[in-house]
Design a binder for these strands. Sequence first.
DNA 1: TGAGGGCTCTGCAACGATGCAGACATCATG
DNA 2: CATGATGTCTGCATCGTTGCAGAGCCCTCA
Lengths: 336, 336
Amino acid sequence: MAGPTLRDVAKRANVSIRTVSNVVNGYAPVSDELRARVQAVLDELDYRPNLIARNLKQGRTGMIALVVPELDVPYFAELAREVITAARARGYVVMIDQTDGDGDRERELLGRDSRATMFDGLLLSPLSVSAEELRERGNRIPIVLLGEHIFNGSFHHVAIDNVAAAREATTHLLDLGRRRVAAIGDQPYATGETAQLRTAGYRQAHNRAGLEVHEELVMSTPHFHRRLGAQAMERLLAMPDPPDAVFCYNDLLALGAIRALIRAGRRVPDDVAVVGLDDIEEGQFSTPSLTTIAPDKGEIARRAVNTLLESITGTPSAPSEIVVPHRLIVRESTSG
Amino acid sequence: MAGPTLRDVAKRANVSIRTVSNVVNGYAPVSDELRARVQAVLDELDYRPNLIARNLKQGRTGMIALVVPELDVPYFAELAREVITAARARGYVVMIDQTDGDGDRERELLGRDSRATMFDGLLLSPLSVSAEELRERGNRIPIVLLGEHIFNGSFHHVAIDNVAAAREATTHLLDLGRRRVAAIGDQPYATGETAQLRTAGYRQAHNRAGLEVHEELVMSTPHFHRRLGAQAMERLLAMPDPPDAVFCYNDLLALGAIRALIRAGRRVPDDVAVVGLDDIEEGQFSTPSLTTIAPDKGEIARRAVNTLLESITGTPSAPSEIVVPHRLIVRESTSG
DNA sequence: TGAGGGCTCTGCAACGATGCAGACATCATG
DNA sequence: CATGATGTCTGCATCGTTGCAGAGCCCTCA
């Protein structure tokens, strides 16, 4: 099972362990002749360095952890892809864990027995755990927070401007002449800060247009999944005066909403226009294709990874609040 | 930066390092009194065990690696989710890497400088690398192969019965009375073994029904993405005698095909019925929803993880060929 | 000729934890 | 009282690697 070690190679080549190490790493000067001899033995035994030992000695692992609520939510899968790519470019690999939005699972990560000490840094997209808890439990490794939650400046944080994004999405619908614009995805409770920011943007858009928000059209959903988007849409359609447009707080809600609309015989966008947020690939190929706000995921990943690696290698810097650009992409669900 | 070590705790509590270790691990008998004293210091210093050191000593890391072509392909994202869940149930965490189907990237994993030595085992879903290469480069850690490729019995391998799955999908279309059933996704070259198995199933269905295969309706695609499904469908529609049904080798191809059909003004399933394979969640909410063959992903993940962990802990067993169940799920794209 | 400087190469210690053998004290037993 | 068993606790060696200091050796140059 266990492969050959430096010692095995050294013994066989009749040199010191240290010299074999030097050959392996290309360090220090080694004469061509000796190098060749050692290399021959390395090849013969098919030596592979034991990275765990190397890590122990060097105090770093070259691994970062990415923790997301659900990996099969397309936004997180696409983000994970970008994170892996960005990390690879910097010589790091990524361990991925998912919490199912379970606060205990998130807290576990910070606890005494967590495997966090195996990683040089942590990218965390929290749903339930609060900034206070994070600070108290203070992990020893650098952390960068992604997207969710409002943070009070205790941690590095990378996200889009959620208020502006929601405002632009809503304004797009108002500009089309829609006057009963619903919102799907509000979360008026402690852990729903992101949703609340989006609701704030939705209100801003109305205010700036000099219009009233129809409060009954603001729908709450505990999660951002297709099924809940469909259910919320059904409730909206059952109203005496249903909406003529919907801003959904993510693309999955929007796709679920579209599904419910078509099932109910409404035309999209003629009867009801729909805007999402996330720009997942699925929205390009749905019928109708989905108008959405596209965060720059590659940029989110790169900024997050870079910030994390700086914290790892450099001196601890003041927590930064990084805002990544987004843009509106108009497709069939609003422009038929 | 570096946290306190066992030595720091030991010094402060005036006991041996070994005793602190015993308290931390609940090993060996330690008197209640001493245990309390040590625990107090542990808490005071907020000691966290250095897992890298523990790993080095114990020769295992508690991490397995999952390598997939693309994490943002829903099938792999959903599979990854199940793998993470299955591994967690067994006390393992999962490092995920993606290869983009790039053979060199896959081979890198097996090379001398790969980080593979950091993991106790490897779950690999290869696209390009061949079984021969895998065997030659012979990694030192246990490997279980997932899904793709035909393997010649050199490795543990978990997959569905691709021939049967494709046959059932095609038979479903023939049973609906369709007589010009196209296939999208063939890959008639070395690394396309999975696709070829599905083509074989497609042919079997025709044979058993006493029907001829319309060879011009078998479309090749280098990848299994939405866009290629749409393109293939457009080519089929441009034919003088277009198909009245399509079996797509995965759900993404199918969703792309549906998109092309609707764009071209055809009704699904009235004009053309569509079946996919993978049962990704997206297919439940598309319009129309997608008939598909559903592999039992949870079972794939559990069997794969269990097999891998057995290879890790137990004696090396003969490579097993594990076939996981699948079933046909009929939705709107064939039953309007 | 011998001091000094490069060039190779080596051995020891250390990273932080655990396995093992045993030290020491206490207690029960014949 | 001697013996052995039991219960606690300790120290050393070790996992496989790298950092560091220095040992030889050969060469050069005054």
